[in-house]
């Protein structure tokens, strides 16, 4: 939890905002929630109980014969078929959950983030691959999806906040490259080169050196050196961007986010901040709880506060 007077005030003022802007919409959504919940249970009974029972009743003997007397290839095909069927059934049963989630986000999330600034919510957008690749933080991914995407201004700083999921698909499945929040903003100082700040990987830091074709930069601050690994194509510019004060602020952000991995890339006069998080962020309600339940709302409030805390701690709002 981020603690400062500014954020403490945001938390205390939120009550009034909640009842003025969100409560009525959430209360109206309760009817929809019950409708989707009803649909979910019907689908669960039909697709999750009745359909498998019917399939087993009709094809059970055939399945048994393949499993006991079939060739390994036939067994493998049967297992694959069952997995495919199960995936489809889960997708159908889960459809009311997804629809409700999208509907409630459409209804309140833009109002929610506008408590902090002036933002547009566009669920179908994502940060362009060129930007992510140019940041040099994540190169080895070939699957990219986005969940939530906000674009707007916070205290006169234009920025994009996006929940991104980057994966690498290979023969044996998929590997997670990055899941979390990406914040992209115009950096207040103008610069020409590229500077990338990775989290320290200890003895595995040599992997950064292999992956990135930039010079390794050593800084005079031993605490910063312990937490981050910096690479740049311009020794002087890296130090121009990472002043001793800015390095201290980066350490503070790192501390606030605890064990969470935080990385930075300065390029094209922009700053890209990537904060890893395994959690599905910005989910203000669940189908299985009342739409006015405060726990998920408070959780989203804390998530937004954490995002803006990065901006505040780095003092990016001060030109």
């Amino acid at each position: 939890m981020v603690s400062s007077d500014y954020f403490a005030k945001l938390r205390s003022d939120f009550e009034e905002f909640y009842y003025q802007k969100l409560w009525l919409k959430l209360t109206t959504m309760e009817q929809d929630r019950l409708k989707y919940l009803h649909r979910f249970w019907i689908l669960f009974f039909l697709m999750g109980v009745l359909l498998p029972a019917l399939i087993i009743f009709i094809f059970g003997e055939w399945f048994y014969l393949i499993l006991t007397q079939g060739s390994p290839k036939e067994i493998e095909s049967l297992v694959k078929l069952c997995l495919l069927g199960a995936t489809m059934i889960i997708a159908v049963i889960g459809s009311p959950i997804v629809t409700y989630k999208l509907k409630i986000k459409d209804s309140i999330i833009e109002d929610f983030i506008n408590y902090f600034g002036s933002f547009r919510y566009s669920p179908l957008s994502c940060i362009h691959d060129d930007i992510i690749r140019n940041s040099l933080l994540f190169n080895s991914y070939n699957r990219h999806s986005s969940d939530d995407h906000f674009y707007g201004t916070y205290k006169n700083v234009t920025m994009t906040i996006s929940e991104e999921n980057l994966r690498y698909k290979h023969n044996k499945g998929e590997s997670k490259i990055f899941k979390g929040i990406i914040i992209l903003l115009d950096f207040p100082k103008s610069f020409q080169g590229q500077t990338v700040v990775f989290s320290d990987w200890g003895i595995f830091n040599f992997l950064h050196k292999i992956a990135i074709k930039l010079q390794h930069i050593s800084f005079e601050d031993p605490v910063f050196e312990k937490k981050f690994e910096v690479f740049s194509n311009d020794q002087i510019e890296a130090r121009f961007l990472l002043t001793t004060a800015f390095m201290e602020r980066m350490l503070k952000v790192k501390k606030v986010f605890g064990g969470k991995k935080i990385q930075f890339s300065f390029f094209d006069n922009k700053l890209l901040i990537a904060v890893s998080s395994a959690k599905d962020m910005f989910e203000p309600s669940s189908l299985f709880k009342s739409s006015t339940d405060r726990r998920p709302i408070n959780e989203v409030l804390e998530q937004f506060i954490s995002v803006f805390a990065v901006i505040e701690f780095l003092k990016l709002t001060q030109q």
Binding site: E220, Q235, I236, E237, R239, F240
Partner: peptide, 19 residues
């Protein structure tokens, strides 16, 4: 101001190299 910041950065690079 911008140039002074660059001089400070260049000085840090120089001192690191000297060290």
């Amino acid at each position: 101001k911008d140039v002074e910041e660059h001089i400070a950065a260049a000085r840090r690079f120089y001192n690191a190299a000297v060290n």
